[in-house]
């Protein structure tokens, strides 16, 4: 885990989201599904963000401005600097035969980098509106569904599923695909195992999503 002050190189609007690009500097991109803690300007706590893309010399994060921290991050301008810690947690296992990426809403964030790492396998992305669905342009070979259609309706069996999205979506995917790898989200203050804000109970033991996750096997999680 490394902490560096990174320079913002770009901030692009994609639907309601912002793709924030920073100079990579000494930071390693890590494995798809891992995350970074991004300093949220003016806020006491950083925000956990999975890595979305790795343009040459850069790291890019897809951010949904839903609260004071994410709004501050989306307001950053090229040239601004922010502290970044990472990569953190456990990413996806990539040694599978028939990958299928499944994303819901801002859960699409880690999938572009994952898609690059896996050679652009098929993907199913679900969004609440066409505006939100603009984020699908970041994921090659993506089939897009918009509510009231859900990603689970487009799932076909026989794949090694990688999923990221809201909890109800992950729970539904876990039921259909018990071997799926799911990336979870939880409020976290630190990202390095200290705060226990992201702790969940798995197999009778307390696990911290920032340390043992955020990617967990579907069968390991009590739905």
């Amino acid at each position: 885990m490394q902490r560096a002050r990174a320079r913002v190189t770009g901030a692009e609007q994609i639907g309601p989201y912002t793709l924030l690009r920073v100079a990579r500097g000494s930071l390693e991109p890590g494995i798809p599904g891992q995350f970074f803690m991004l300093e949220a300007p003016g806020r006491p706590l950083p925000r956990p963000m999975s890595l979305c893309l790795t343009p040459p010399g850069e790291l890019a994060f897809l951010i949904d401005p839903i609260g004071p921290g994410t709004r501050a991050l989306c307001a950053l301008q090229p040239g601004d600097r922010l502290a970044i810690l990472g990569p953190l947690g456990n990413g996806y296992r990539l040694d599978v035969e028939r990958p299928l990426l499944v994303g819901g809403g801002i859960g699409a964030a880690p999938l572009p980098y994952l898609s690059d790492a896996l050679g652009h396998p098929p993907a199913i992305l679900g969004f609440r509106s066409d505006w939100h669905a603009e984020a699908a342009q970041l994921v090659p070979n993506a089939e897009v569904v918009v509510e009231p259609t859900f990603v689970t309706e487009a799932l076909s069996p026989g794949h090694d599923v990688f999923a990221c999205g809201p909890e109800p979506m992950l729970a539904a995917v876990a039921k259909l695909e018990p071997a799926a790898q799911l990336a979870w989200e939880a409020p976290m203050a630190c990202g390095h195992g200290a705060c226990y804000g992201c702790a969940v109970q798995i197999d009778g033991e307390i696990k911290r999503l920032c340390v043992e996750g955020p990617v967990l096997a579907a069968e390991a999680v009590a739905a």
């Binding site: 705060c195 804000g197 702790a199």
Partner: peptide, 18 residues
């Protein structure tokens, strides 16, 4: 510990109920 959510950022600090 307590059920999630158990942390919340506030102005100039945070709350926890771990």
């Amino acid at each position: 510990g307590n059920a999630p959510p158990r942390i919340a950022e506030v102005e100039h600090g945070m709350l926890n109920s771990i």
